[in-house]
């Protein structure tokens, strides 16, 4: 044991600790970036929730109208649905957020709500098709039996068709919600400060493209996985309630 060996060891340790410092700095940087991105989470969530809440009733009404016997209801709704489904969401978004205000210069329109309107308009059309598929999945004999018993068309819908359609529709509805969540990233194009927009700002400052965007991807992945997980719990709970109902009644 001599001083040389000890000094060598100390040098090595110092060198290694230098690397640790670098790692710590990197982790701090990542935490900072993540914190910065998560600052936009409220906007992403607001876009998603507001658009979905608006799109659900729009979709339901459109689906009902599209299945209606009256051509004056059916045809315009079918045209609307096919148009919004046929045009890219990004184009609809640009049209609504930039096109509409330019056509009505006097109006003060809020960019966030215009974006929500564009998403809701589009997803209303998507959901309409989901709902329609759900309603059509219920056997014709069900509405015939209800009508033959003297129920009117509203009662038939509310008590016989929709409860059965809801069960068939839930998984597809979750898919649409996940798709909407991912599509809110398009709002970055119209300068809503949601997470993708913030990521782009960060990239513009740091040029750290690979690193920021992979972090952003992870954030979206976490969000969509959470959404699917919640949906699965809901589905299971609905199923359990059903079987509990079965047991309590047959007991």
């Amino acid at each position: 044991m001599n001083f040389e060996t000890i000094r060598e060891a100390a040098d090595t340790l110092q060198y290694l600790l230098g690397g640790l410092q670098w790692t710590a700095a990197k982790i701090r940087e990542a935490a900072d970036t993540l914190q910065y991105l998560l600052g936009g989470l409220q906007w992403t969530a607001a876009l998603m929730v507001c658009s979905m809440l608006l799109a659900l009733p729009i979709g339901l009404l459109l689906a009902a109208a599209r299945l209606s016997r009256h051509r004056l209801l059916r045809l315009p709704c079918a045209a609307y649905i096919e148009t919004l489904r046929g045009v890219p969401l990004l184009v609809t978004l640009l049209f609504v957020v930039y096109g509409l205000p330019s056509a009505a210069p006097g109006w003060k329109l809020n960019d966030f709500w215009l974006t929500v309107a564009a998403f809701a308009a589009c997803y209303g059309a998507y959901l309409a098709e989901t709902f329609r598929a759900g309603i059509e999945s219920v056997d014709d004999g069900q509405s015939e039996a209800a009508r033959a018993l003297g129920l009117n068309s509203t009662q038939t819908m509310a008590y016989v068709i929709l409860p059965q359609a809801a069960r068939n529709v839930l998984p597809a509805l979750v898919n649409d919600a996940v798709a909407l969540l991912k599509d809110t990233s398009l709002a970055s194009v119209v300068a809503i400060p949601e997470i993708t927009q913030l990521a782009r700002r960060e990239v513009a400052l740091t040029y750290d493209v690979f690193y920021v965007y992979s972090l952003l991807g992870c954030v979206y992945l976490c969000l969509t996985l959470c959404l699917s997980y919640i949906a699965r719990i809901l589905e299971k709970r609905g199923f359990r309630a059903e079987s509990a109902r079965l047991h309590s009644r047959s007991a």
Partner: peptide, 14 residues
Amino acid sequence: RAEVGMVFQRFNLF
């Protein structure tokens, strides 16, 4: 229809 009962080939129970 309320006064006319109908029973179907495929039952059509809810």
